[in-house]
Design a protein around this nucleic acid. Structure first.
Lengths: 133, 133
DNA sequence: CGTTCGCATTACGTAAACGTCATCGACGTG
DNA sequence: CACGTCGATGACGTTTACGTAATGCGAACG
């Protein structure tokens, strides 16, 4: 059983990252593995966070931006003003992500069209080649 | 009239980048402004490329990756094998972009749900505050 | 005609996100 | 117990994507 705790090596293999990366994320306060003596033990929460980190990275979010987003997920017992502020940040990020997705959709459509054009070119070149034989 | 040519300054204002950035992109062979004496003059093509560069960046593509994508758009008269290879690369990129969009959609949904939860918390805290007065 | 402006080049600086290397303590094991 | 493996720490290196001077040059302006 996974016993809900994983060593750094297990984490690396599971999520395809290096130990250095995990230690780096801890230093940047993105992960909070518990310590058994010296060693780190990563909890379920850490794994959830890591998944979000890796996902965020693929959209070009910086680690600092990701950290702010992650803070939304732990919340705890803060002040109303604090929570409200966090809420606002999250709303902005959401708007950001939605506009990014639209752009991405646009880019995908552009590229698709370009590819259809490329297919034509390739087809006609093959034709020419055949004709030349 | 724009005369189809823009100075570096005009480019900067239009696309909200610094001169340094434009020169850097030229050095990296992402842009190819023509020269009038010393000065750079950016063509319509440069502007189209710049738009694609800026868009690509927001999705975490590196400048090098973007350069490869841009090469697809100039094509010219190369060999069939070359074009086919380029075509393959573009297909991979497309698949990549589409999977990114799916992930992004997932992330957006997650965040939305989180926000709905946040709204509840805030609402109940306001309630508590009122009750305490 | 000197000076300011815009742009150029050259060169060094920087922040982010790790990689790499050296060294060290804790364990298991043949 | 010598040895190898795993993990920790610290320090320095690296790549990407520009920023920031320092310096120079040609045109325009007062």
């Amino acid at each position: 059983m996974t016993e809900d705790l994983m060593t750094i090596r297990e984490m690396c293999e599971t999520y395809d990252v290096t130990p250095r990366t995990l230690r780096f994320y801890e230093a940047k306060e993105l992960l909070f593995p518990i310590r058994e003596g010296q060693k780190r033990l990563f909890t379920k929460s850490d794994r959830a966070r890591l998944k979000l980190i890796l996902r965020g990275k693929r959209f070009g979010f910086s680690l600092e931006e990701i950290r702010q987003l992650l803070d939304l997920y732990h919340v705890g017992d803060q002040q109303l003003t604090q929570i409200s502020r966090t809420y606002e940040i999250a709303c902005e990020r959401l708007a950001d992500m939605e506009s990014r997705r639209e752009e991405l959709t646009q880019a995908i459509d552009d590229l698709k069209e370009q590819l259809r054009w490329g297919e034509k070119v390739i087809a006609s070149m093959k034709q020419d080649k055949k004709a030349a034989e």
